[in-house]
Amino acid sequence: MRGQTFLGAIALGLLAAGAYVGLVASPPDAFQGEYVRIMYAHVPNAWVAYVAFAITCVASALYLAKRTPVYDYIAHSATELGVVFTGLALVTGSIWGRPVWGTWWTWDARLVTTAVLFFIYLGALLVRGLADDPRRGARLAAVVSIVGFLDVPVIHYSVVWFRTLHQPASLTRGDIKIAPPMLAALLLGLLAFTVLFAYLLTLRIRLARAEDAGEAA
């Protein structure tokens, strides 16, 4: 519990530092001007969504194999957070797209596959809720979560495989297309959101465990 509060404090500190570097200390972009700062929140949200669903996928597979409740607590918690962060990635992307592209939404492969991801895992949560037997719901949600994870590599490579409006990755192995002060803001954002996610995940798992214990009692 103490460790959890400590993790939360670190997340808060990193987010404050990220906000300062992203909004104040880093320079505007030559083409986009100040709008580029939205990237320092947008990319971390998408990254955390990937991480969350990767955890969901692994925990779901372990749950199906071993049927130990703890794996389901993890899968359920990571799914919920993943849906929230996918939603945030879509919203921040939309807010970024309006001034820079000139549109809130368009039928681009990256955008569509990300929206599909949002609905796949929303569907996983629904399947869980619809089942009469919670264990059956957990199993069905695990199957949806494992199959649904196939969408993550499709999203990631959509900008390479398809001709898209969305720009390709700026950080690839051996190739960094971001000026150092802006890269620092982006990396700090990634770190801050990852720690925030870790904090929220531990909280949510604790809640899932407590809920289960409460129902059993």
Binding site: D29, F31, W101, Q167, I178, A179, M182
Partner: peptide, 15 residues
């Protein structure tokens, strides 16, 4: 009837 701006993945401060 609609124009959308496409930008690159390069980010740098103004020269």
């Amino acid at each position: 009837h609609a124009i959308i701006v496409k930008h690159s993945e390069q980010y740098a401060p103004p020269a």
